[in-house]
Write a protein that binds this DNA or RNA. Sequence first.
DNA 1: CTTATTCCCTGATTGC
DNA 2: TGCAATCAGGGAATAA
Length: 270
Amino acid sequence: MPELPEVETIRRDLEPRLVGRRFTRVEIAPDRVPVLQGIDEATFREGVAGARIEALSRRGKFLIIDLDTGAKLVVHLRMTGKLLLPDAPLTGHLRATFTLDDGSTLRFTDLRKFGRLWLVDSLSPLFDNIGPEPLTEGFGLEALSAALLNRKAAVKSVILDQRRIAGIGNIYADEALFEAGIMPARLGGGLSAEEVVRLHSAIRTVLLRGVESRGASFRDYLDAEGQSGSMQMYVKVFRRTGKPCYVCGTAIERCRIGGRSTHYCPVCQR
DNA sequence: CTTATTCCCTGATTGC
DNA sequence: TGCAATCAGGGAATAA
């Protein structure tokens, strides 16, 4: 499940390999499930083939490839999507192949076929409702307070909501709440000022650790070279149900919040 | 506006 | 042992 740290790792790996190159050919693998969002195949191919890549950026879990035509190729990997460079072995279902002017390819594969591609002239309206980036300087305490203000949903659901904060998925939500010592089922608007401070710091800590570890590979995630990340080795609660808490030894518990598996220490998190 | 639930998708895992 | 049911989860759609 590529979340902010995983998408950022892919962005950093792809940047030196793609910027300055030109797409020469685009091939969409025929499939019952569409991979292109809001654009037909011919228009997409015409808009990408021949275009030079100027920059790679990220917004939440979206990867953005700026083209010299002014258009932007946007990728969302969702659950099992991968962007693979030539040396990486092919895993999952091939959804699209982009050939570059140096003869190399960038392949988009996706086992569960939830991932999507867009080609847009403007990032609006696609990104209109995405919340603040938690690793930028602009993400201060006030930004998190505003996201949580008066929320009656579980704090975990609030931080998973991409409209409130960008880039957090199930792994980093559980880890951030453990790091902050907050029970995931607590109401978002019910945290004390002190707890908001702890959560703010915890979100940044776990996301930064994720980026430094090149992402978490539990089942599916692989970077652009086809390599695993190592964040799963530093994870303290996610998928550790029944195992002892590293801090107090109590068995990690699991529940369901907002339809998502949620892992927590019943003693360390209040 | 809010929150909660269902659905999409397929390979792995669980249950009888 | 074998096959069916369940699980995993990001986000859109839908319900309330």
